[in-house]
Amino acid sequence: MEAAEELRKEPFSAKFWRSLGLIALVLGGFFPLVWTILTSLKSETELQTKPITYLPHIWKWDNYVQVFQAKPFLNFFLNSLITSSVSTILCVIIAAMAAYPLARLNIKNKGLIMSSVVVFSMIPVIAMMVPLYKIMTHFSLINTYPALILPYTALSLPVAILTLTAFFTSIPSELESAAMVDGCSKVGALRKIILPLALPGLVTAGILVFVNSWNEFLLALSLNTRLEMRTVSVGVTLYQGEFAFPFALMSAAITIAMIPIIILIIVFQKRIVSGLTAGSVKG
């Protein structure tokens, strides 16, 4: 109500600029994806005619069947889903365990530990590529899920630890003291009081990790090189042949691979925005 009243007493010009900005943001944010979806529904011949068409002349839904036939796209999708989900769960659990003492316990060298977590997040992924390849080869993990799950878990650990430390710190410690009065142990307080209160934080950290893992390209490109073990971020680039660039098929592949991401941001938009403050402004 209050917001609506504010809008009403506003002069017309301000309203005009505000709407224009909103339209620009929405068009700018959505246009590339909308254009990709439109491209995914055209035939390759239609894509190579001038002048270009905006809406498809013939809606070629068959592209979405072709995506799965030309390459093992179902594998790509499932590989991404498995590596991203498992690394998300692992990373959130391990980060929560590490963040709790940082936020709550009276321990030595807290500042040093926090700064080294930040420095870890600055190591370029490409610097780790060759050593990781050697490690994974040594343990015969190349072209298996752990070859990606382990590095993805480690890659997102710093940001997850920072986010969760900030979250745990924001929970009033009187609640723990209350648990103590009730005769809880420290671990009991963590499980019964802190974790339920920190659930929103765990969800936010989980989303950040999932998005990171789903989007990762460099390690996926170099560690798991067997076609059936590719993830979507690399798989989408594999449709291009030596000379041909089948944009319709690639667009269809991109569109399908965006579905989990789109669901996440629609469902959790508020969580993501409020969760990022806590995590990053801390560091």
Partner: peptide
């Protein structure tokens, strides 16, 4: 507006590059 703002952030960089390469 919030979803429009979040979409490019959450999208794989490779996808953004391929989409724009076509545009």
């Amino acid at each position: 507006a919030r979803v429009a703002l979040l979409l490019p952030w959450a999208m794989p960089p490779v996808f953004s590059a391929l989409m724009f390469a076509w545009m």
